[in-house]
Amino acid sequence: MTEAVNAAPYGRDRRPFLRRLASASEPYLYSAPALILIVTVMLVPLVIGISYAFRDMTLLDPFSGGFIGLDHFRALAKDKTFWQALKNTVYWTGYSVALQFCFGLILALLLDKPFRGRGLAQALCFLPWAVPSFLSGLNWAMLFNPIVGPIPHWLYGLGLMSAPDNLLSSPDHAMWGPIIANVWWGIPFFAITLLAALQSIPRDLYEAAAIDGATPFQRFRSITLPFLAPTIAITVMLRTVWIANFADLIVVMTNGGPADRTQIVASYIFTQAFRRLDFGYASAIAMVLLALLLVYSMLIVLLRQTLLRER
C-alpha cells in the first residue's frame, strides 16, 4: 500500500478551465473595488509624490518641474529645522503614545469590571474619539488660553506656574499643549481595542489562577499581560505611525511655534508644502519620514511574531 502512495502522482486538477478561473479569482473579486480605489487614489499619487522628491517642484513657478537628483536630500541633511523637527517628532510621538497607552490600559481595566452604569460610563469615556481632531485642537488651545480658559489659572493656583500665562507660548513647555490634547483625544482608541482584548480572555483562566493562590497583581502579570501582548504590539505600532504623521493638532494649536519648538516633521512638511509651496522639498521630507516609519513597523512586526511564538 505504501508503494502505491509513493508511485501514484497526485493527478492534475481536472475541473474545466473557466471554473478553476472563477474559483481562483473569487477573493480578488471581493476585494477588487477596495483595491482599485486604494491603488488609484493612494498608490499612484504616492508614486507621483515620491517622484517630486527628485524634482524641482514649486507651485506658481512656471519654470519648475525639472529633475534635480538628490539635491533636496542634500539640502535636507543641512536643514537645522528638519533635525529639530525630527527630535520633536520623537518627543511628541513617544510621550503621546506612552501616555495614551497607559491611560487607555487603565481605563480598559476599569471598564472590564461589571458595575452599574458601565454602559453609560464607557460611552462617555470614549466620546473624545468622536470629536473632530481640529476641533479638539481649537478646544484645547482655548482651555490653555488665560483669557477664556481655566487651565493657566489652575496651574498658577497650584504653584506650577509663576504667572497665569499661555502654556502654548512657552518655548520650553509648549509641546505639552498638543501632547495633552492628543492624549485626551487618543485614549479611547487604546481603551476600545484593549477592552475588547481583555474581554476575549477566558474567564476560567482567572478563576484557575485565583484557586492557585495568585494575587491580583500576579494574575495581571501572568495572564492579562501575555494575552494582551500581541494586541498591544499591533495597536502601539499603528498608533505610533498615525501620531507621527498627525499634524492637525500642532498646526491648529501652535503652528509649529514658538520658534519651531513644536515643529514636528509632519507639520514641517505641511508648512513647506502649503506656506512655501515647495512640494519637491516637502516630498523629500515625507519620504525620509516614511522610510523611518517603515523600519520601525518592521521591528514591531518581528517583535510581535517572537511574542506569538513564545506563547
Binding site: A24, P27, L35, V41, L46, V265, A266, I269, L290, S297
Partner: peptide
C-alpha cells in the same frame, strides 16, 4: 487564503504609514 493576500495586506499597511500631505498635489493633478 490566496496568493495575493500577503501583498494586499502589505499595501494596506503601507497606506497607513505616510503623511497624507504628500498626496495632496498629485491627487489634485489627477
Amino acid at each position: 487564503s490566496f496568493r495575493g493576500k500577503f501583498w494586499i495586506v502589505g499595501l494596506m499597511l503601507l497606506t497607513q504609514m505616510f503623511p497624507l500631505v504628500m498626496l495632496i498635489a498629485p491627487i489634485f493633478k489627477i
